[in-house]
């Protein structure tokens, strides 16, 4: 290879150095919403059943997660991190039930574009009241995955 060709290659390399530039993908394209998905069922049925009117508030405090809403068969509630327990008052039509969820929380790094999230692992769920007859926990891991974690029977 002649010296001229080598010099040309050298210059091409320098040119590439100056024209090349990296592009950084810093747009968050992943879901970061971590919520407890709860479905409502009539006892003995496998298909979700809508509630005529439902309202959900946090206990204690004045956080209103659902204003009175008609015909909902599934709700999504946030779990408070750092305390290991979240309580909610759920009004089914005119009657109030109390839902208590005990869980462990872990910090999960999503990406530099999305930041971090808290994921939770359900330990125990209690429900007291006149409407709810029982519950099941099909998924104990509460992440960004869109699955029904809790099923409440009435």
């Amino acid at each position: 290879m002649s010296r001229n060709r080598f010099t040309l290659l050298l210059l091409l390399g320098c040119l590439w150095l100056f024209v090349s530039c990296g592009s950084e993908d810093e747009v968050c394209r992943e879901s970061t919403e971590v919520k407890l998905h709860i479905g409502f069922y009539k006892t003995g049925e496998t298909k979700v059943s809508p509630i005529d009117s439902i309202m959900v508030v946090g206990i204690p405090g004045d956080s209103v997660f659902y204003e009175p809403t008609k015909n909902l068969s599934e709700i999504q509630l946030p779990l408070e991190f750092g305390v290991g327990v979240s309580q909610y008052a759920i009004r089914f039509n005119e009657k109030w039930d109390t839902l208590t969820v005990l869980y462990n929380s872990d910090l999960y790094f999503v990406s530099y574009a999305c930041g971090m999230i808290y994921t939770h692992t359900i330990d125990t769920v209690l429900i007291k009241g006149q409407t709810s007859k029982g519950l099941s926990i099909p998924y104990k891991s509460v992440t960004t995955e869109n699955v029904q974690h809790l099923q409440i029977y009435r």
Binding site: T32, E33, V34, K35, G58, S63, P78, L79, E80, F81, S86, L107, G115, M116, I117, Y118
Partner: peptide
């Protein structure tokens, strides 16, 4: 300055 959302408190 890494962020995470407290969805319970919004």
């Amino acid at each position: 300055n890494i962020s995470y959302i407290d969805e319970y408190k919004g």
